[in-house]
Amino acid sequence: MSENLLQIKNISVTFKTRHGVLKAIDDLSLNVKKGEILGLVGESGAGKSMTGAAVLGLIDPPGRLSSGQIWYKGQRIDQAPETIRGHEISMIFQDPLVSLNPLRRIGDQLVETILTHMPITKAEAVDRARKGLEEVGIDPERINAYPHTFSGGMRQRVVIALALAPEPALIIADEPTTALDVSVQAQILDLLKQLCRERGTSIILVTHDMGVIAETTDRVGVLYAGRLAEIGETRDVLTNPKHPYTKGLVASTPRIDASSFDKTLYQISGSMPKLDAMPNGCAFHPRCEFALDKCRIDRPSIIADRAACWLLDGEETLL
C-alpha cells in the first residue's frame, strides 16, 4: 500500500477575474497510494472538486493550473493530458446524468467506452459490459435498458460500471452518494470499497460528510480555503485531530446518540473566507481560538507530515 500512484506537488489553481487573480487552490501537495481510498473533506468552496479537476486536466478556463506538478505512475501528467488521463483515471460525479446519455441504452454506452479503451471485438466488449453490470449488482439482462428506467441508486451503479470499464488504476469520485438515500449510499460505498480491495484500484473520494469519510476511507485530507489543513490516517485524524479546523469539524458533527438530546452542538463561528478576501498568514486564523501572533502573519506549511498549523511547530517529535 505504500507505493505512490499519484503525486500532487505544490499545485495552485488561479482564476483571472476583473478583481484580480484569485487562488482557488493554493500550494497543495498530497499523494495517493496504490489501492487506497483517500478522502477529501471540507466545506463547499474549499477546493475539493477543483483538486479532482486538476488531476484530470478538467479545469475550465479562465481557471488554470498556474504552478506545481502532478505525477502519475512516475510520469508527469500535468503537461500531457490526453495520454494518460481518461484511460487510467475515471471520474464519478454526484449526478449520474452527467456521465450517462439519457437517450442511449446503457449497454451501448458501456460498449463504446470499452472499445475506445481496449483493442477488442464488439462481441467481446458486449461480454465485458455484461460482466461489468453484474459486478456492480445490476442484472446483465438489463443491458438494453435506458438510464431513466433505473432508480437513482441503480443509475449510480451504472455510472460506476462505466467508470470501471477502462480498468482505471484511479477513480475520482466527487460526492458520488450525496444525492442518494442513506440505505442506497451504504450499498454504493460498500461497492466502491470492495472494488478497491479486489482490483487494487485507488480512489479519491470527495465528500463533505464526515460519516462517509469515517466509514469509507483509509486516509483523509482536510481542505480549507484552497489549502490542505490536515492529512493522515482517517481514524487518527478523526479521533485525534491536530488542526483546530479539523477539531471543529469533528466536534460539530451530530451523532446518533441517545445522550445528545438538549446538548448544544459545538460550532465554529464565522465562515470560510471568500477567495477575494483571504486573510494573511493562516487562512483559518480569524476563526481560530488558538491563534498566535505569528498565525496572522506567516502561513504555516504542513508540519510533521500532518497539519498546517503553527501549534505543531517544535512538537514534531511528539507526534
Binding site: 442513506v182 440505505s183 449510499q185 451504504a186 460505498l189 460528510d209 464526515m210 460519516g211 462517509v212 469519510i213 469515517a214 466509514e215 469509507t216 481514524r235 478523526l238 479521533t239 469533528v250 458533527t253 451523532r255 446518533i256 446518540d257 441517545a258 445528545s260 438530546f261
Partner: peptide, 26 residues
Amino acid sequence: SPTGLFSRPQQDYTKMLLNSAPSINF
C-alpha cells in the same frame, strides 16, 4: 423518543435507517 428510537428501534425499517447512516464514531 430519540433515546428509545436509538437504543430500541422496533421496526426493521428503522433499524435499517439507523444501520446505514454513516457514522463518525469508531
